[in-house]
């Protein structure tokens, strides 16, 4: 192998610094969430305890953390399911040009770049005008989809740009119906990316703030609840909450990555056994 150029070491140092910059603050609050009962928001640690985590489970003076967590989790699953189905369908639609496809594409990009607060305000105004009550599962759900769907569609574009249509043609030549071709040929090939879209759908919804702000109604989602708490952060309890919700996000990411890894391995094994049998 060629020796590494000197720039490699400088760039490695840069990358390491960047990763510290990315993760340093999160790790710091994870440590500080174990502050002793008398501890403050900054170092030094005033003893080590799980006091602030217990504090979270006790009745809070402000709001309803567990209720908001349950709502965010349910909403995340709803948004995830809708994002997967709608993005895959739209991804298939965009493989062929149809009348209005360019306009729809630009509209999807617009959905991504339009300031979130406008979606929040606009959806809130519509519900108000029609005398409907804003609720996280209706207006909040729709508003969040305007954020997750563009990401889902962009991933599907990336997938189908690299998709080899000869597999489908082969299936069709063997007499497979359109649905069979999709279910038995296309879907298994794009499956890892579909899992990625699902992860995006869930995580972006679970952490969404701006588009949910005016569309969640009287029952807060978790990010809204956390934001309510930040207006008077004086105790490490907010770090404990931050640490728990970050740990939960990481757990979800881990589960999804594991799912992709297992399917990839299973497929590799099946291919190997097919090759042996053949």
């Amino acid at each position: 192998m060629e020796p590494r150029p000197r720039s490699f070491y400088a760039l490695t140092a840069f990358f390491v610094l960047f990763v510290i910059f990315l993760y340093g603050p999160t790790i710091t609050i994870a440590i500080l969430s174990f502050q002793g009962p008398q501890g403050g928001l900054t170092f030094p640690m005033n003893g080590v305890s799980t006091y602030w985590f217990h504090n979270l489970f006790e009745q809070q003076a402000v709001g309803d953390i567990w209720g908001s967590f349950r709502r965010s989790f349910a909403l995340g699953l709803m948004v995830m399911a809708a994002t997967v189905v709608i993005s895959v369908m739209a991804g298939l639609a965009f493989r062929k040009r149809f009348r209005g496809s360019a306009a729809l594409f630009y509209l999807t990009i617009a959905s991504l770049v339009i300031p979130s607060i406008l979606v929040s305000l606009g959806v809130g105004l519509i519900f108000d005008r029609f005398g409907l009550k804003v609720h996280w599962a209706t207006s909040g759900f729709g508003a969040q989809l305007t954020w997750t769907l563009p990401f889902g569609l962009l991933v599907m574009f990336a997938v189908f740009n690299r998709f080899n249509p000869s597999y489908e043609e082969a299936a069709r030549d063997q007499g497979a119906s359109a649905w069979q071709t999709f279910a038995h040929v296309v879907l298994p090939i794009i499956f890892p990316s579909v899992v990625g879209v699902a992860l995006f759908g869930f995580s972006l919804s679970y952490d969404e703030f701006a588009r949910t702000l005016l569309t969640a109604g009287s029952y807060n989602t978790l990010p809204l609840e956390i934001f309510g708490m930040t207006t008077n952060v004086t105790k490490p309890v907010i770090y404990a909450l931050g640490t728990l919700t970050t740990a939960f996000s990481l757990l979800i990411i881990g589960v999804f990555l594991l799912a992709v890894w297992i399917t990839a391995r299973r497929r590799a094994r099946r291919m190997a056994s097919l090759a042996k049998a053949g």
Binding site: A93, G122, T146
Partner: peptide, 22 residues
Amino acid sequence: GWLLAAPLTAVLAGFLVLPILT
């Protein structure tokens, strides 16, 4: 194409275009 893109179109029409018009 229209059928497959209909759900996306519906969501964007209802929760993006209509809100901006409002």
